[in-house]
Structure formats: C-alpha cells, structure tokens
C-alpha cells in the first residue's frame, strides 16, 4: 500500500520586484508516493527550480513568495512552518542536490567537514561520530575515506557531485530533490552519477524529485513524469505512458526534438517560438502561440486539468472543446 509522502496542491509562487511580478509557478498540483520518483521536465524558466525552492523553503527572501496553495509533506503543510521548523526539515528529511557541483561546495572547508556539518546540524552531537559517518558517506558514493581532509578544488566535477550527493543523503532523507544534477557534467560522468542516484535511492528507500530539461535523464531514473511549461504542469503520467503516447502537444514537441537512433531523420523537429514572458498573464491557453493544433478557442478559454485514467493533461483537446487532431495524427 503506497502512502503519500508529498502532496502539492495548487501551488502558486511569484517573484515580486519593485516594478514587476514574475509568475514563476502557477497553481501546480503534484503527488509523490513514499519511495516514488517523479521527473520534472521543462525548458529553462518553466518553474522547475522555483517549485523545488518552494518545497525547500529556499526562495529568495526579499522577492520570492508563495502566494497560495499548500505543500503537504508527511501531512504537515510546509508553507505554514516557521523558519526554524523548516530548518529542522531541510537537510534531514528533505535534501537537495544542486546543478553546478563546481560551485556548490565551500572552497575553503574540507569535504569531510562539509559532510559532517549536516550530520552535526541534525542531531549527531558527537564530533568524532559525525566525522566517522561522513567517511562512511564518502565511501558510499565511491570516494576513498582517505580523501576526507581534502578540499573541493582537489576533486573533479563528477567527484564533487558525489560529495554533494553524500551531503544530501547523509541524514537519510525521506525526499531528495535533484535539480539538474548532471547538467554540468560530461556525458560519461552523467551516466555514472545518475546510476548512483538511482541505486542509492533504492538502497535508502528515498523518494525522488528529479528536475531536468532532458527527458532522457528522467527516463533513466523516474517512474512518473511531470511536464512543466510556463509554471504549469501541462502533462503528468507514468513515464512509459507519457513517452509512448503524449497527450499534450508540448510533450509531443519535446519528444520530437530528441534524436532517436532507430528513426532516420534529416532534421529534428524543434518546437517553434519561445516561452512567454512570465511577467505577463495571458488569456486562454499558455501554449497556444507555439501549438501546431491551436484553434480560435485556445486564445479565449484556458484549459483546466483533465484526468484521463491515471494521467492528467491541460489541453482543450482533451476537454472536448476542440477536436483532438493530435491523436488522429498519431494513430
């Protein structure tokens, strides 16, 4: 019996500056079962990282605000917690791996101490014990214990990312958010790091939200996938279903822009156009300007979330408002 670990309901996050409001996340809902994994996929600026920061409570203090919605984690609404209560959760129950391992470690503290620090924050009062556990963590991510007293500049990019993974998993968190964990690494190292995340996730029984702009990366690790576009989850479903039969035109566009070895193609088909300015709230469907199936109605009526068996999609074609020409073309 699967129980829900994380349930995001209608989360809306904005960046508010003096003369502008950036609508970064616009009412997304997402459920993650204990031990489950979701891939959050979308272009740069789709709101993936903002979603992660909203969960972690790491939004920039002056500008970032959760306007409405709730983030239920183990039944507690994280949006209502105080900074102190959030601190107890960060690093121990919810951890995060960041995009750029080159800059994510403090250059003047040894890697051993950086791992031990998170253990000391969350309960391991004994310094020696924390150091010992930090060594264990290093070995777990495949770095010899003997390198504990070395500094980040003595490690390669892939090894730094392993250290960051060790920091994130040190307190055995319930939820790991990996924000583009392999984007800054070269392809062979990417594969190693992904494999490690997958193995450790299974070993430690951690739930995972993997953020990536790369469908291939998500395909290797996750059970479910959520496609984000302009701060909305436009499609959600089991990875296999979404990949084999995309319901949203944007998902289809993303899949069409991946090179496939078995299909001979002169050129990949890009999604034309750009993502809309997040400071402007459009009427109608947000994807309409770039959608090859768009009709008149799309610029008037905004789509709502339609449920199709255990999948969800935001498109008027699936509300029956306009004819589903996409499915016809597919089949």
């Amino acid at each position: 019996m699967e129980s829900l670990l994380l349930s995001i309901n209608n989360l809306t996050t904005q960046y508010i500056t003096d003369n502008n409001i950036i609508h970064a996340v616009n009412g997304i809902s997402l459920e993650l079962a204990r031990g489950g994994s979701i891939g959050l996929v979308g272009e740069s600026g789709a709101g993936k990282t903002t979603t992660a920061y909203s969960i972690m409570g790491l939004l920039p203090k002056l500008t970032g605000k959760i306007i409405k919605g709730s983030i239920l984690f183990e039944g507690k609404d994280l949006t209502l917690l105080s900074e102190e209560e959030m601190r107890d959760i960060r690093g121990s129950k919810i951890s995060m791996i960041f995009q750029d391992p080159m800059t994510s470690l403090n250059p003047i503290i040894t890697v051993g101490d950086q791992i031990a620090e998170v253990l000391e924050i969350h309960g391991t009062s004994n310094k020696n014990e924390a150091q010992k556990k930090a060594g264990d963590m290093l070995e777990m991510v495949g770095i010899p214990r003997g390198r504990m007293n070395e500094y980040p500049h003595q490690f390669s990019g892939g090894m730094k990312q392993r250290v960051i993974i060790a920091i994130a998993l040190a307190c055995n968190p319930e939820l790991l958010i990996a924000d583009e964990p392999t984007t800054a690494l070269d392809v062979t190292i990417q594969a190693q790091v992904l494999k490690m995340i997958k193995e450790l996730k299974n070993e430690l029984d951690t739930s995972l939200i993997l953020i990536s702009h790369n469908l291939g990366v998500v395909a290797q690790v996750c059970e479910n996938v959520a496609i984000m576009y302009a701060g909305r989850i436009v499609e959600f479903g089991a990875l296999r279903d979404v990949f084999s039969k995309p319901l949203h035109p944007y998902t289809e566009g993303l899949l069409n822009s991946i090179p496939r070895i078995e299909v001979e193609k002169e050129r990949l088909i890009p999604i034309r156009g750009m993502m809309p300015d997040p400071s402007i709230v459009p009427s109608g469907c947000i994807f309409k300007p770039r959608c090859p199936y768009a009709k008149e109605e799309c610029s008037v009526q905004a789509p709502i979330v339609s449920k199709i068996s255990d999948r969800r999609v935001m498109c008027l074609m699936h509300e029956g408002v306009i004819p589903n020409t996409m499915g016809a073309a597919n089949e």
Binding site: R87, I89, N106, I164, A168
Partner: peptide, 14 residues
C-alpha cells in the same frame, strides 16, 4: 549569492 551558501542553507544551517 554563491551556490555553496545555498548548499549551506539547504543543510538546514541557521
């Protein structure tokens, strides 16, 4: 504004 400060905050450090 450095990434490693964000890492430190993500650890739950005061």
């Amino acid at each position: 504004r450095q990434d490693y400060i964000r890492t430190a905050r993500a650890k739950g450090l005061e």
